[in-house]
């Protein structure tokens, strides 16, 4: 584990950034600060060797969330330039009291908390939870990344609903924000007229897409999986759309495809579960997929559900961006 003081220094940066977000009068500044907040958090997770969490935080928190927030600012026409107001924000006394009380309660709760990394902490010693995951996951599934086994198999039912939460977000955005007219072609003189952007995009997007696909399919072996990989795939689309314009991006990837893909991913996930059920197992009991070698069944099940997650996440992020970025 990395030196303790590095984590503490980074945590101090997180606090300063959070205060900055609350005090910022300019929403663009606040959005960028939130991105920085997530990036520093990702560094902290890395220092704690929680690489799956770090990758998620970097891709979702620092990456796509920041882009979506900025997209929302553009769409709503909020003042994203400089604000003339220089006075300090007024602080609601009731809100302040509630916040202080909540903070004090949180601090009180830490008094009896085990120290970070304490090997005797309840979360590390529970025989049927943490110890089972650590001692038996390799034997039961032959998958080296324990985090993926917990997410996609032991707690696969949760992950199916998390995928469903992402799909629900897309449904909400479609039902509330979707407009019928196609996006306008960008005016000349925008980014696609600038050779550096165009060349850079042409060079990076294929690699971003390849990397996203890699992260989706290799969650069993290393950090990553459907959520992170799906977001990275979507980032490839976003970069393309930012430089070549939304109309060109939607010609390359028509919204009706991403609409279907968003639901299809959830159906793949639940479909794997139903297949297990039809083969005589319980819902999502991947052992049933390969009666001769249950561990192979587990691997197959996890690979398929991660594909479902990746498909839904990528399509939903693209959908939200499409609807939000259209002024």
């Amino acid at each position: 584990m990395t030196d303790r003081w590095i984590v503490e220094l980074l945590l101090a940066v997180v606090v300063v950034t959070a205060v900055g977000v609350v005090r910022a009068r300019n929403l663009l500044v606040a959005s960028v600060l939130l991105g920085i907040y997530s990036l520093v958090m990702a560094l902290i997770w890395t220092a704690m060797e929680a690489y799956d969490v770090a990758l998620t935080e970097a891709a979702v928190g620092a990456g796509i969330s920041t882009l979506l927030l900025i997209g929302a600012l553009i769409r709503t026409g909020s003042r994203i330039g400089g604000s003339k107001e220089r006075d300090a924000p007024r602080i609601d006394k009731v809100a302040l009291a509630v916040a202080v009380l909540t903070g004090a309660a949180l601090a009180y709760g830490t008094l009896d908390m085990p120290a970070i990394g304490d090997p005797t902490a309840p979360v590390h010693v529970h025989p049927k939870v943490a110890r089972h995951y650590i001692d038996r996951s390799m034997e039961e599934t032959h998958v080296p990344n324990m985090v993926t086994v917990v997410l996609a198999s032991y707690r696969g039912y949760d992950t199916m609903f998390e995928t469903c939460v992402v799909f629900t977000a897309a449904l909400g955005v479609m039902v509330l924000l979707r407009r019928r007219r196609p996006p306008a072609e960008p005016a000349p003189g925008e980014m696609r007229e600038q050779a550096i952007f165009v060349v850079m995009t042409r060079m990076t997007v294929p690699f971003v897409l390849a990397y996203g696909s890699y992260v989706i399919t290799h969650g069993e072996l290393g950090p990553g999986g459907g959520f992170q990989g799906g977001v990275i795939l979507a980032a490839g689309y976003l970069i393309y759309a930012l430089v070549y314009g939304l109309a060109a991006a939607q010609r390359a990837l028509p919204p009706r495809l991403t609409d279907v893909g968003a639901g299809l991913g959830v159906l793949i996930y639940a479909g794997v579960g139903v297949a297990c059920l039809l083969l005589g197992g319980d819902f999502l009991a991947y052992d049933a997929l390969n009666q001769a070698d249950p561990a192979k069944g587990q691997q197959l099940g996890m690979t398929l559900v991660e594909l479902g997650v990746g498909l839904t996440v990528a399509c939903v992020m693209v959908t939200i961006f499409n609807e939000v970025a259209q002024p």
């Binding site: 009896d112 908390m113 902490a121 049927k128 939870v129 943490a130």
Partner: peptide, 25 residues
């Protein structure tokens, strides 16, 4: 953090010995 489990029934059993913990409260 205090119990190491997310299962409701298991959590209930483990909480019975942890009534004094500020984390639990």
């Amino acid at each position: 953090l205090a119990t190491g489990t997310l299962n409701m029934a298991d959590m209930a059993v483990r909480l019975a010995d942890l009534h004094g913990s500020t984390t639990v409260r």
